[in-house]
Design a protein around this nucleic acid. Structure first.
Lengths: 192, 192
DNA sequence: TCGATTGTCTAGCGGTGCTAGGGTTGGGTC
DNA sequence: GACCCAACCCTAGCACCGCTAGACAATCGA
């Protein structure tokens, strides 16, 4: 039995290596540079090994996305729990979200831009994705305002942050005024 | 001279055909299906002909994007000019924008998701892109509120719409509550 | 020690964006 | 009207992509 366990452990370890390497490569040179050949070379295995762990490149992107969702949720919770008062909590959340997107562009892309084969906004949505949304909901729900469904408010706020994040990173918005935009967004959307 | 003019005319016509075909193909089957081979086959020329008009696939995407920018600006202006009062104008703008994104997903992708090799938010930004932003600014500027720079407000509002458009189309937001989200966004962001 | 199973690799398929180089065609000139 | 030349377009091919079939080696259980 112990032999099988060791093998399983090694397999799991190699799977982590694949995901970590894909993420690293994507952050360094963009997702276009993450080819199965290059990825295989970096982990020092042949291409088919990748397919014994994942159905294809899509699933690898999906794995990076799930990892990112957990980290994003953690970053948001850390920021909000350190802030005092609803207004400041929301502002901290917004900054944390945008910082995460700016610092981990490839992971953010895996989560929200690329097709990782994940189900969103459904019952069989993976837990990390639900939890990331929950992390937003926790702080945003309290500033939704009377008569406004907290979930709906969170969706709108999230979409706004997502728009700022993607347009900024794609060069559609200049990064200089980023802080001002966040201020404006928080001031207008949040009811405190 | 007349011969050269005719040739120039035919060349321009063929260029329009390329862009129109690329757009059509992208709307029918997505941008992934727009390969240089398929595109060449549809216009009934060989692949290298494409490269006598455009530097590469990127530039073709860029051409579709510019076409889309002009149409988007037109759609927004048509909607706002038919509405009465600032509040209703902004709501009409938001609906027109999101409708455009939903009805022309491939064009919207060319504009804001894909790399069409265009310069944004700079002085040498192509005129259609500047004009599309101007179309938003015209109606949004009047509801920015006191002390808020109209350009900055427009950027924030635009980013929010962009977030709603992309997240909805990517299946991250369910389309059922789309109208409610727009209502909320307009109510909170616009100062009337 | 042997057979079977598991694991990995080499090689290759059909596709991608893009380009070099050879023909063919048609206009301008004598 | 015949010729030359330039402009134009196509065939063929490059290196790369995601993915997989089938041969081979290593390891386990009997």
């Amino acid at each position: 039995m112990s032999v099988q366990e060791r093998k399983q452990r090694e397999r799991a370890e190699r799977e982590r290596l694949i995901v970590a390497t894909a993420r690293e490569l994507a952050e360094q040179q963009g997702w276009d540079a993450v080819t199965t050949r290059r990825l295989a070379e970096r982990i020092e295995y042949s291409q088919p090994v990748l397919y014994s762990h994942f159905r294809g490149k899509r699933e690898i992107i999906g794995a990076v996305a799930l990892e990112g969702a957990t980290e994003l949720a953690g970053a948001v919770r850390a920021a909000t729990s350190a802030a005092h008062g609803p207004r400041e909590r929301v502002a901290a959340l917004a900054r944390a979200y945008l910082d995460f997107a700016a610092l981990n562009p490839a992971v953010y892309d895996a989560l929200f831009q690329l097709d990782g084969g994940l189900a969103y906004a459904q019952e069989h949505t993976p837990e990390p994705l639900k939890d990331a949304f929950a992390a937003l909901l926790e702080s945003l729900g309290e500033v939704a305002g009377d008569g406004v469904h907290p979930g709906l408010f969170t969706e709108v706020f999230w979409a706004s942050l997502h728009g700022l994040a993607t347009l900024t990173r794609a060069g559609r918005l200049l990064p200089e005024d980023a802080a001002q935009r966040v201020e404006l967004l928080v001031d207008r959307l949040a009811v405190v």
